[in-house]
């Protein structure tokens, strides 16, 4: 993948420096033009720790200037997420972590892109949504893989059990990322990793940035797992709706099958995430309970903001 087109002062300066790294260091003083510019910059800085860019030296991942910019952008993202969490409805606290977490996730209300895809969306709208979602799906499960070494015994074993399924159980054809790749190709989209980053709205990039940030910071390990729990718990039913929508529009069966797979897989994963992963983590590290709910909120809040952004682009009332 090549660096995307810059979207403002920060990405212009940052991408120019990254292309000539390590001869030039990243300038830490450039301010972002706006949230879109800041968000793309952070997405690119995180990507240096995943697959990188063909036009950036691999060593740039640990360029001190790049790390300083990343830290500043992450601090700002975390501050905004924590402010929204503090202003949101209080979480249940009965002492039963699993029951409370399921209840908290079920009670969150946001607009549903899945329902729109199921009943109303046009073919073009669905293809556009798939492009934006591909930013996530083509590295599905990767951000959470960072968390494994940071966990106590039971949560670690349970997360490895869940991730083993995400990664295809040893069969590359069943790797969820790869199932999505095949689906994209079948509906005529370009399946190359990162191909649609340049077209993704701020909110879709930011959703991925939040996930990467939670995965990359040990301090935020419980929030990363709360995010996972919310993601898996809100996946089976929307996946069923999306699969129906794809079949309604007669889009390629391979892509509907990707969503079919998630209906049953995530009915396992949500139980593992809530009970065996978050539940045992809080048994072992009780001070992490609040962070699990914070992470769950981040997942649902980011999803809701992305849905609002998509509906606004399409001129649809959410």
């Amino acid at each position: 993948m090549l660096l995307p087109e810059p979207r403002g002062a920060l990405t212009s300066a940052l991408f120019a420096a990254l292309r000539t790294s390590p001869r030039t260091q990243v300038d830490v003083c450039v301010e972002p033009s706006d949230l879109d510019d800041a968000t793309l910059a952070l997405w690119v800085l995180h990507e240096l720790s995943y697959r990188g860019f063909d036009d950036v030296d691999d060593a740039a991942e640990w360029d001190l200037g790049a790390l300083a910019v990343r830290r500043r952008l992450e601090d700002d993202l975390e501050r905004r997420m924590r402010e929204r969490y503090a202003a949101s409805a209080a979480r249940p606290d009965t002492g039963d972590l699993a029951a409370d977490l399921f209840t908290y996730i079920e009670q969150f209300e946001g607009p549903s892109l899945a329902r729109f895809v199921q009943t109303t969306a046009t073919r073009d709208q669905v293809l556009e949504l798939l492009k934006w979602r591909s930013i996530y799906h083509l590295k599905e499960a990767d951000p959470t893989a960072w968390v494994i070494p940071r966990l106590p015994v039971r949560a670690k074993a349970a997360l490895a059990e869940l991730q083993y399924d995400e990664y295809g159980g040893g069969n590359p054809n069943q790797l969820h990322q790869n199932l999505f790749t095949r689906g994209m190709r079948a509906v005529g989209l370009n399946e190359k990793y990162g191909r649609y980053v340049g077209e993704a709205p701020t909110e879709f990039l930011e959703m991925n940035n939040a996930l990467s940030m939670l995965g990359l910071h040990r301090r935020l390990r419980a929030a990363a797992l709360g995010h996972l729990a919310a993601f898996e718990t809100t996946s089976s039913e929307p996946s069923r709706r999306i699969a129906q929508g794809l079949r309604r529009l007669e889009l390629a069966e391979e892509l509907a099958e990707y969503y079919d797979e998630h209906v049953t897989a995530d009915a396992v994963h949500d139980q593992l995430a809530v009970r065996s992963i978050c539940g045992t983590l809080v048994d072992d590290e009780p001070d992490q309970a609040e962070e699990i709910f914070f992470g769950a909120f981040v997942c649902m809040d980011m999803e809701s903001r992305a849905a609002h952004a998509a509906f606004a682009r399409w001129g649809v009332d959410a």
């Binding site: 079920e106 089976s236 039913e237 049953t264």
Partner: peptide
Amino acid sequence: DKPIVALCRCQKSARKPWCDGTHKL
């Protein structure tokens, strides 16, 4: 063909014997 599966207990799944998350509704 998977190491772990979820079986429906609420009898409302559209994919029985597998759970499809319908119990949440």
